[in-house]
Amino acid sequence: MAESLPHGGQPIQLAFSPTSAKESGNFRLLELPPDLLKSIESNNGSPLTWAIKGDPTEDAVLCTDDKTYSIRSISLSNSVLIAGPGEAQDQIIIQDTNRELLQVAPVLPKVHRLAGLLRGREYDEGREDLDDDMHDDEQATQSQQQAKKGYLTYAQALTGIQASEAELTKALKDRRILLLNGTLRPIAASYLSTILELLLNSLVSLQQKHDSASVKLLADTLQDDHDIRPQVTKQVMGWFGDVDERQWKMEIPSVLKQVGIGILKSYRHDPIDEKEFLDKWRNAVGDTFASQADLSLLSGNYLVSTKPQSHPPSNQLTYFPSSELPLEPLARFSDLFLTRSRWKAEEIAPFLDDIAIDRKERDKLLLKYARALTTPGGTYYTSRTIK
């Protein structure tokens, strides 16, 4: 036991805990960024629902209610003593010695794992399984529970996917994954396009306003006329607008985008003339919304090439979705530059948005993996491996 310098006129006694050898390594120091520190200070004593996620093959991440953070160990040049009050008023007990600091930084959630976990579980017309015929309020029998084996549940995804609950919810919406009786089912793109086109047609035939349409009327119509379950219809409406118990306020751009992607998917290998594609797209969404079907809605999902032999030269569109490119930046840039040797700045940007948290990080990736060329026609990017 050692006696420290006087503090406030009274000496403080320092002592190592008799169990400090056993407790060594039990404590970790976590350095919080300003936003996390603020959430602690402003929660008024309410419990925080943070979680550290990651299996033995993954780097651990810290997940809050709405964000994901990487965790990185930093060695300290000076040891930090972990201490607490002793039994005596003037005594402090040293419980551990720490030589590292855990730093956290915002990262993108690892929701890409959903694709592999849900492969082969698509919900498509004519492929509704036994468990999908159950109503949510019914008690599942043992055989029905057995039928669910092999499906990924929402609870399993929340525990196993390195993402906050808010990010997981957004991923399910963005990736068009249905939640049916507790299990996750990605809806087939063609079936989704069919449902959206039926909703658009029903809005017109039922004389419903797109910003205040009756949820029940639309869901009942699709069930009666096309045998589409209301539970599915309502979730689809939720993906493409705001839904309450009675009304659907449709987000026109997101609906038009999805219908456009559904058409564009047929042209992965054989390009389609831009004018022909626009005619198909606008015909699919109907006269009411045709004027708002603009190619800018499909940014990051297609490539443009010119057909020089046509008179006048025409643009050709090829389906090329950023969602199918590698998530690792080096592999992403490799695929992009294998597809094209050089990209205009405005063309490559949409294919990087899903691997960068913000524009600043996107610019860092371009600086690291690409070479900028400034020409009278604008800025182009080429691979750094090109001499």
Rank of each mutant, 00 (worst) to 15 (best):
D294V: 14
K257S: 14
S79M: 08
L298C: 03
V80A: 12
A147L: 09
P186W: 08
G262N: 12
L158T: 01
E125P: 01
K173P: 01
L179H: 06
L367S: 15
L168H: 04
L303T: 12
A370G: 11
H269S: 14
Q103D: 11
L179D: 10
S193A: 10
L179I: 13
Y302T: 02
L108V: 01
R72G: 00
I71P: 02
Q208P: 02
L330N: 08
L295D: 13
P56C: 09
K53F: 04
N181I: 07
L366R: 07
F320E: 06
A284I: 06
Y123W: 15
K170D: 13
P109L: 04
F277S: 02
D279V: 09
L117N: 10
V61C: 12
N315C: 12
Q139D: 10
R332H: 03
S214E: 00
P329Q: 13
L303A: 12
S323R: 02
A293S: 09
A372G: 01
A370M: 14
L152Y: 03
G286F: 11
T183A: 03
T169L: 08
V243A: 10
L222H: 04
T68N: 03
D211C: 03
L264Q: 03
I386M: 11
G182L: 02
G120L: 11
R268G: 01
G25L: 07
K249Y: 11
N201S: 15
T194N: 11
Q103W: 08
E87L: 05
A188K: 13
S322R: 08
D220F: 01
N181V: 00
R119G: 07
K275R: 08
A163Y: 05
K67D: 08
I386P: 01
P186H: 07
I195W: 01
Q142P: 03
Q145C: 08
A345C: 09
E274D: 04
Y69Q: 05
L108R: 13
V285M: 03
S4C: 05
Q146M: 06
L102Q: 12
E197R: 15
P85C: 09
N43M: 07
S190Y: 00
G25K: 08
R127P: 00
S310T: 14
Y319V: 07
D273I: 12
C63G: 09
Q146E: 12
Q162I: 04
A293V: 07
S314Y: 04
R340M: 10
A171M: 02
T183Q: 02
I272Q: 02
W50Q: 09
D174A: 13
